[in-house]
Simulated scan of single mutants.
Amino acid sequence: MTVLSMYKSFRTQFPKITKKADVEHIRLWGEVNPECAYSWFGSLANVLNYEMVVSSAENDYKSLFEFFRSSYLNGESEVRDCIDVSFVENLFFNVPVEKVAPFWDTFPDVLKQLYVRFHGRKPTY
């Protein structure tokens, strides 16, 4: 799996959140272009951060988190790097700790390890 194939697969499997991420990506970068798939996953993380603040439906994101867990475990090094740097490192930013907790609980362990390795701790904003 490449970053581009992961991008295309995600867009097919999660059309509702994809539309929101496209809006965010256009706000930040001016357009949505598959050639910018790596940075698009950072825009997706921004949208999920907002969703965590306004929603308590952490179970709605289990399949999305599972998508990234599976992609990380089965992807090429560029896929693992994209998930780590563009998605996981940007997740949980400015989300109050009481809102983070239920999402963190459903976050796969392998992705938690990436987050903690980068930030030095679990999210506590």
Rank of each mutant, 00 (worst) to 15 (best):
M1F: 05
M1P: 00
T2C: 07
V3I: 15
V3M: 04
L4N: 01
L4Y: 10
Y7A: 03
R11M: 11
R11Y: 06
R11S: 14
R11N: 11
T12W: 06
P15V: 06
K16P: 02
K16Q: 10
T18C: 08
T18N: 12
T18F: 08
K19H: 06
A21K: 06
D22I: 12
D22F: 08
E24D: 11
E24M: 14
H25M: 05
H25Q: 13
H25R: 10
H25A: 14
I26H: 06
R27L: 10
E31M: 12
V32K: 11
N33M: 12
E35D: 10
C36W: 07
C36S: 09
A37S: 15
A37G: 03
A37V: 07
S39W: 08
G42L: 06
A45V: 09
N46Y: 15
N46L: 14
N46F: 14
V47R: 03
V47F: 08
V47H: 05
L48C: 12
N49V: 03
N49F: 02
E51N: 02
E51K: 05
M52K: 04
M52N: 07
M52L: 10
V53T: 14
V54D: 05
S55Q: 15
S55D: 10
S55N: 15
S56G: 15
A57N: 14
A57L: 09
N59R: 09
N59W: 05
D60K: 08
Y61E: 01
K62V: 12
S63L: 09
S63R: 11
L64A: 03
F65W: 14
F65G: 04
E66H: 10
E66I: 06
F67G: 09
F67C: 06
F68V: 09
R69L: 09
R69F: 03
S71V: 08
L73P: 02
L73I: 11
N74L: 12
E76T: 14
E76N: 10
E78W: 00
R80D: 01
R80V: 06
R80E: 14
D84L: 00
S86E: 12
S86L: 00
S86H: 01
F87M: 10
N90L: 08
L91T: 11
F92A: 01
F92Y: 12
F92M: 00
V95K: 06
P96A: 07
K99C: 13
K99W: 07
A101H: 13
A101Q: 15
P102V: 02
F103N: 06
W104C: 04
D105C: 07
T106M: 09
F107S: 07
P108D: 05
P108M: 03
P108R: 08
V110G: 04
K112V: 05
Q113I: 13
Y115V: 01
F118S: 01
H119G: 03
H119D: 04
G120F: 10
R121A: 15
K122D: 02
T124H: 12
T124C: 11
T124I: 09
